[in-house]
Computed example of a mutant assay.
Amino acid sequence: MSNASTSPFPLAACAEMLWRDRPIEWRASRLKELGFGVGLWNWPEHDIGKLEATGASFTIMNGYLTGRLTDDEGADELIRTARETAQIGKRLGVQRLNLHGTGLGDRGLPVQPIQVVTGVMWLKARDTLSRIVELAEQEDVTFTLENLNLPVDHPGTPFGRAEDTLALVSSIDHPRLRLNLDLYHAQIGEGNLVELCRKSLPWIGEIQVADVPGRFEPGTGEVNWNGIARALKAMGYSGPIGMEAWASGDSEEALEAFRAAFTI
């Protein structure tokens, strides 16, 4: 089954959040069979050879292991682990390598929380992302910067708001650095999703979705996802949509609800 016949967008789903009792390579193979691309989190947790053997289309993966945007030591560590991760990404053919303002640890909490982001930190973050672009050109890969919500899931993460990630990525304005615009996080922290997509459109590399509240598949919460799908098509977006959501029940039913929400 191909999602191209039912949706104007390439659809993908985060493998770690579905069929949680199954091996990750089984999940990747099943997503491929169902016509979805595969999103991954941290690669050291997986057998890369087994994932390669699935032949799945890997759409996005965490693009670093440790480090942060905001200071010299953190930036050097982020670049070092991003370079290592780029090699794995190329083995799997991962289309986008994902970044955050700082490394995330247990339960998605920042390893080094920052409550006040200073002007010096903003300048350093932009410098770090410029170094990421240089790395991306050297390795022939593309990185994305993801927004996160601060009130519920990721308090203390610098540059978490979509308006912050948009400001950084648009100021660099390079095709090797795009936005991973996560609308679940944006709905919690900012709202006004259609206008946010419109403002971000020139820099979007991927859009990720989950319903609010609960972070389950589309249709379980408050967001009118089919309305957003129609708005995205009208504004000319044809890039990937990734479901980064827990299944509220059966994983395949959750995927079909996701597909239906983005079928126009």
Rank of each mutant, 00 (worst) to 15 (best):
G55D: 09
E52Y: 03
N62C: 13
L65C: 07
F36W: 00
L51R: 03
N62G: 11
D72L: 12
D47Y: 09
G49H: 12
E73G: 11
P44Q: 12
G63H: 00
D71P: 10
A53V: 06
N42D: 15
G74D: 01
T54E: 12
N42V: 10
A56P: 07
G67L: 08
I48V: 15
L51I: 04
D76W: 06
I48N: 13
D76F: 01
R30L: 04
G37T: 07
E73R: 15
L51S: 03
E33C: 06
A75V: 04
E52V: 07
L31N: 00
E52K: 13
L51E: 01
T66F: 14
I60G: 04
S57H: 14
L69E: 01
W41N: 13
R68S: 11
R68T: 03
D76P: 00
V38M: 07
D47V: 10
G63S: 07
E73N: 12
L40W: 08
T59A: 08
P44W: 11
A56H: 03
E25R: 12
G74Q: 02
S57E: 15
G49L: 13
D72A: 15
K50A: 15
E45Y: 15
G74R: 00
S57Q: 13
G74E: 03
E45N: 14
G49M: 13
D47S: 15
G35D: 05
L65Y: 13
K50T: 04
M61E: 05
G67C: 07
M61N: 01
G55L: 09
G37N: 06
L34Y: 01
G55F: 08
P44K: 09
R68Y: 05
D47W: 09
T54K: 10
F36L: 01
K50L: 14
H46V: 05
G55C: 10
T66Q: 14
E25T: 11
M61H: 00
G35W: 02
G49T: 15
H46S: 09
T59H: 06
V38F: 04
M61C: 06
A75P: 10
A53P: 04
W43N: 02
T54H: 12
E73I: 12
G55H: 07
G67Y: 03
V38P: 09
G63T: 05
A75Q: 11
F58E: 02
L69Y: 01
S29A: 15
D47T: 10
R27N: 02
D76H: 09
G37V: 06
R27S: 05
R27C: 06
K32H: 08
W26L: 01
D71F: 06
A56R: 06
F58Q: 05
I60F: 05
G39F: 00
F58N: 02
L31I: 06
G37F: 02
A75G: 14
R27H: 01
M61S: 08
D72W: 10
T66I: 12
T59E: 13
L31Q: 02
G74W: 03
W41A: 09
E33P: 06
S29Q: 11
G37D: 04
L65N: 04
E45S: 14
K32P: 05
G55M: 12
S57V: 14
T66R: 15
A56Q: 03
E25Y: 10
D72F: 08
D71S: 13
